[in-house]
Design a protein around this nucleic acid. Structure first.
Lengths: 172, 172
DNA sequence: CGCATTCATTTAACATGTTAAGCATCTCCC
DNA sequence: GGGAGATGCTTAACATGTTAAATGAATGCG
């Protein structure tokens, strides 16, 4: 893994190393990104076989646990931004995997629920998905997995309410 | 924050809970996603002030540590897929933040390096970025942070070479 | 040498992330 | 009860993720 010195034939190599920073590849965001990718890489092929993306699967899973939710709460649950969710719901509805009806009390609100077809699709995907998750758990260790999730939750807590309010130092 | 029970005025709520699965919000992918988002939320405003996205910043950081790299190796370092990197390099080059020249020995290869302007921009952003990272470290704890990164690395290792080769069980 | 194969990079096409606007609808308060 | 502002959702616009295909250049082999 040792980088060999640059080929001198290059002539005038542009300057570098002029801005000292932590080793890039070991930053927390990168670690989290790589770890998540390593995990998702396991699931994507199975989902793809059923014509589902990761986000569409998240939505179906969130819907499977309840009768109906408003779009905004679904966004929170599935951890998607409004615009993304809006597009995906449009597509899922076109595929008859979900149903929508405007709430009676408040015409602005739209109640989303999973359809029978959606349930069937979930039933087809879930076993595979659970098996993959089980294999991951087996490889990494159930105890370590629980520990990791605890630390991730603690990290979230540590940062809760840091940059959420209007950044008071970025306005001037 | 306690959710109130669904309004019974809804009438015939579509069936749910028909596909038993783990609690969705506690899955490993979701934990990783939320944790990473909590971290990146801290950095994005600062980067945005300098007209940089998270990925563009990753590329500049990767380039700052070396004289020049091939596109493919840069993709590995910055953890970006080829097509994404290709687009971003085009834009960064148009903004004169990077430079490119085709390698002499192999006309297919393109050597990418950071420009003087790129270095200047990095010098402007880096202090802020480091300060944010320091604050995150302070809040979460340096020791816990190191532990977390170790676990994330171990997770990656656990899954290395699982779904990377052509999935032998998805072909048939 | 000629040509099929491989390789590095880019382009294309579609899905999502992200921020800002738009559009209804609802709430509140005068 | 009417208009200002808040709220729920969608659309728009641009950047990236993701897979497949295209392009151009190097390589291997007959």
């Amino acid at each position: 893994m040792v980088k060999k010195p640059a080929d001198p034939a290059n002539g005038s190599a542009p300057a570098a190393r002029q801005v000292p920073m932590r080793d890039f590849s070991r930053s927390l965001p990168m670690s989290l990104l790589r770890a998540r990718e390593a995990v998702m890489r396991q699931f994507r092929p199975s989902l793809r076989q059923h014509g589902l993306t990761e986000q569409q699967w998240r939505i179906l899973r969130a819907l499977a646990a309840i009768d109906a939710v408003e779009v905004t709460e679904l966004a929170r649950t599935a951890f998607l931004l409004g615009p993304s969710l809006s597009r995906i719901l449009r597509d899922l509805e076109a595929r008859n995997l979900i149903e929508r009806k405007t709430a009676k009390a408040d015409q602005r609100r739209s109640m989303v629920s999973i359809s029978k077809e959606g349930v069937k699709l979930m039933a087809a995907v879930a076993p595979n998905s659970e098996a993959i998750y089980a294999e991951i758990t087996r490889r990494f260790g159930a105890r370590k997995l629980a520990e990791l999730q605890e630390m991730l939750g603690a990290l979230e807590q540590s940062l809760a309410g840091l940059g959420s309010a209007d950044d008071t130092l970025a306005e001037g």
